[in-house]
Simulated scan of single mutants.
Amino acid sequence: MSNEGVDEAGWDLEPGDESAPLVEAVGRLVKFCREAAGLRASDLGDALGYGEDMVRKIERGARIPRPEFLDRADELLNAGGHLKAFKEDMEKARYPKKVRELKALEDRAVEVLLYSNHNIHGLLQTPEYARALFEMRQPAYSSDVVERETAARMARKSVFEREPAPTLSFVQEQVTLERPLGGKMVLRGQLEHLLEVARLRNVTLQVMPTDREEHAGTQGLIEVLKFADGTAVGRSEGAFNGRPVSNLRELRILELRYGMIRAQALTPRESLAFIEHALGRL
């Protein structure tokens, strides 16, 4: 597999991305600092280990510079920290717009209800598991996109580090704990991670067994995020055409379904034992 995009100076900017003006401004600043230092684009590329074309892409705002590129360029060009100052902004800009919007909601949520039926939920995924999912997408993603999507998914896991911690409730279908996506070693690492997360005081993790004769989650994934001001947003694959909803009536329907799913699933203690048993079989 090609490493294109993994070791290069940045990431391609998506067409129409709202971060484009900032990325272009940073590119112009890179060019200004380079010219002030009396260097050609090829000189800067050689000094940093990148091609001239990559430097020019960054300077014209067609490529989002990586934080390490800005670090090294800042030092080489004696930019006085002006390039380094944009590291966090460029790190955020690399993530797809839909991921940035979802992360902003998750960062505000005080309670999160999540039911997943096909894969381990994104907030619970290890980097290896997430990468395996993106690598098996069809049509196939480029390695650059796989790397970008994986990094974006991992960035969302900051929700577990917040203070005060939000209340997080997960229900996973049994099959998601048994299907060896990415291989058995990837699944083993994923199950070990689930056991760690499930023991956090603000996290409840339950397993929905395959042998249940009644199941309120047959319409697919459910996500509900509640905020401190009393508002909430939710969505489900099998309700309201899959679109996000925020009015009280529709949210109550999603919460009713989720409550039934939790009641039908294994208890948290039983779920931990199930995951430990599944891990032991690998």
Rank of each mutant, 00 (worst) to 15 (best):
R72D: 11
D144Q: 15
L114P: 00
K226L: 04
M90R: 09
G51E: 10
R179C: 00
P268Q: 05
R281M: 02
V26P: 06
S271A: 07
L254R: 02
W11H: 06
R262D: 00
L221N: 05
R235N: 11
P164Q: 03
Q174N: 08
R94K: 15
S143Q: 14
A152Q: 14
P244D: 04
A239D: 09
P166H: 01
H193P: 11
R153D: 09
R28V: 01
G189F: 12
E192T: 01
P96W: 01
G259E: 01
E4R: 12
S116W: 07
S246W: 12
L39R: 11
R153L: 11
L123H: 06
L29G: 08
R60P: 01
K97C: 00
G10P: 15
L13W: 13
K157M: 15
P127L: 07
D43M: 00
E14M: 08
V203C: 12
A25W: 06
D71I: 00
L195H: 09
I261P: 10
E52W: 03
F86C: 10
E59P: 10
V203M: 09
E101R: 13
D71Y: 00
R60N: 08
E192Q: 08
R252Q: 11
R66L: 04
S42E: 13
G217I: 03
Y115T: 05
Q219C: 00
R156M: 15
Y258D: 07
A37K: 15
M154H: 05
R252M: 05
E18L: 12
A104W: 02
G234T: 14
E213V: 07
A228V: 05
L254W: 03
G182F: 04
F134Y: 13
L44S: 01
T210Y: 04
R56W: 03
L254Q: 03
S19R: 06
F32T: 14
E4V: 15
S142P: 13
Q172E: 09
